[in-house]
Amino acid sequence: MNEQKPTIMLVDGMALLFRAYFATAVHGQFMRNSNGVPTNGVYGFVKHFLTAVSHFNPSHIAVCWDMGSKTFRTDMYDGYKANRPEAPAELIPQFDLVKEVVDAFDVPNIGLKGYEADDCIGTIATQVKEDSHVKILTGDQDILQLLDERISVVLLQKGYGNYLVHTKDTFYEEKGIHPRQMIDLKAFMGDTSDNYPGVKGIGEKTALKLLQQFGHIEGVLENIDQLTKGQRTKIEQDLDMLHLSRQLAEIKCDVPVECPLDLAVFRYNREKVLDKFAEVEFRGLHQLLDEKQYA
């Protein structure tokens, strides 16, 4: 008997919220409600969320959040994400508001101090993938390292309802390496948005070539005498940073969070959601509510 497995969508909450906020903030459209609270990010978040739900029709959903900028990675390397500006003043009150709206859908909000949303997503995906198909909704390519037979990644593209869906096979076709090798790829080339350097002077092209040839960092180091003099010098000069960058790049899949599938069933109470929309003064979003999902 071929039992149909449920599909859980794990949502990178900050990725949706920030994308929605900046898409409208650039024109100064903060959509303040009658209490003066800006709502543009939350409004766009809900639009992204409901559009993805109707497109992919998951049976289960959980939303994961970053819980402040201090994490085990900033303890390891104080430059980690140090180039990020402070959150804009109009976005700050929307951090709590967006979680209230997610609550109104009876969807779990998950986050853990000291870890990033990616670590919570990786952990839950690992816990539930034996019993379900996992789709991760984000705008962040770092999460592609989690791809496997049961985990796919849905990357938000420009606008609403445009997605690039990656599987482990599409990733291999594009990069010529396996998803887990992406951790070593980032260790070599660094990450400008997360602000760690990797090995100075080694870019994506060289790093991909080395990983295709030798498999992983250890393989490269074991065969370092086969590299060009320039490559060898660069790696030897930045060896500590190479190993540190690898630790920073790897998503932890064993953090102390859990989300049993029965807590993530996606069925919401329409009246409860509409009451929240009315309270926040959202207009027009009720049209996106899908009748199949009502409790």
Rank of each mutant, 00 (worst) to 15 (best):
A52F: 14
M31G: 05
D169Q: 15
Y43C: 05
L185T: 06
F282N: 11
D184F: 06
Q181D: 07
V37S: 02
R283T: 14
K252T: 05
G36A: 08
F282W: 06
K113R: 07
L263Y: 11
K5A: 06
D96H: 06
Q141C: 08
K99M: 03
I121M: 13
E236R: 00
L239T: 01
Q213E: 09
P256I: 09
E130T: 13
G79L: 02
G68F: 02
Q29N: 12
V102S: 00
L244M: 10
D78P: 11
Q231G: 03
S132W: 03
T206I: 11
K229Q: 05
N83M: 01
L144H: 13
C259M: 15
D131Y: 10
Q157T: 12
M189C: 06
N57W: 09
D78E: 05
L155G: 12
Y21P: 02
D118L: 10
V273M: 08
E236P: 00
P93G: 02
M14A: 07
S152D: 15
N195H: 07
Y163W: 12
Y172P: 10
Q157N: 14
V63Q: 00
N2Q: 15
L289Y: 11
D103W: 02
L289E: 09
Y294H: 14
G79M: 03
I251A: 06
N2R: 15
D225M: 00
V128G: 00
H48Y: 15
L156P: 04
V63P: 03
K99C: 02
C253K: 08
A52P: 15
G176V: 14
F266W: 13
E100N: 09
V63C: 10
T233G: 02
T233A: 04
R180S: 11
D142A: 13
R32N: 11
A25P: 04
V255T: 06
R246M: 04
L289M: 11
E258A: 07
E291M: 12
N33E: 10
T74G: 00
N2L: 15
V37L: 05
R246Y: 01
L210M: 09
N83H: 04
I110N: 01
L156T: 06
Q181E: 11
L147I: 04
I177F: 14
Q141F: 07
D66E: 03
D194E: 10
F277L: 12
P38R: 08
S132L: 01
H27C: 11
Q141D: 10
M241S: 01
G36D: 06
M1S: 11
I136P: 07
R246P: 00
P88E: 01
V53H: 14
K135E: 13
F282Y: 07
